[in-house]
C-alpha cells in the first residue's frame, strides 16, 4: 500500500463500504422475503419468457438484484445477450 493510498485509500474496498453493500442487499431481500432459491427460480422464469423473443439468453448469466431506492425499491435484472444470437 503506497503513501497516497494509505491516506486517501481506495474507499470502495474498505470494510465499511463492503458492509454497506452487503447490508443494502440483505435488507431488501429480508423485506421482500426473497430467498436465494427464489432468485434462482426467478432467473429461470425470466429467461423462459424472454426466450420467446430473444433466443440468445443464457439463464446462468442473468443477475437479479433488489435495490433500495429513495421512495421505491427496485428489482434490477441484468440480462446479457450472447453475441451473434440475433442471427440464430
Amino acid at each position: 500500500m503506497g503513501f497516497f493510498n494509505s491516506i486517501f485509500g481506495p474507499r470502495n474496498n474498505r470494510s465499511a463500504q463492503v458492509a454497506k453493500e452487503r447490508l443494502a442487499t440483505v435488507l431488501v431481500d429480508d423485506r421482500y422475503k426473497l430467498t436465494p432459491e427464489m432468485k434462482e427460480q426467478m432467473k429461470l422464469d425470466i429467461a423462459e419468457v424472454l426466450a420467446r423473443y430473444l433466443p440468445s439468453i443464457d439463464p446462468d448469466q442473468i443477475e437479479v438484484t433488489l435495490l433500495r431506492g429513495e421512495s421505491n425499491d427496485h428489482l434490477k435484472a441484468d440480462i446479457p445477450l450472447r453475441r451473434g444470437g440475433s442471427e440464430s
Binding site: 485509500g9 474507499r11 474498505r14 470494510s15 465499511a16 458492509a19 454497506k20 447490508l23 443494502a24 433500495r68
Partner: peptide
Amino acid sequence: VNRGEMLSVEDVIEL
C-alpha cells in the same frame, strides 16, 4: 469511521 472501517451514521441512515 474516518478510516473507512466502520459504517458511518450517514451509511446507517441511508440503509
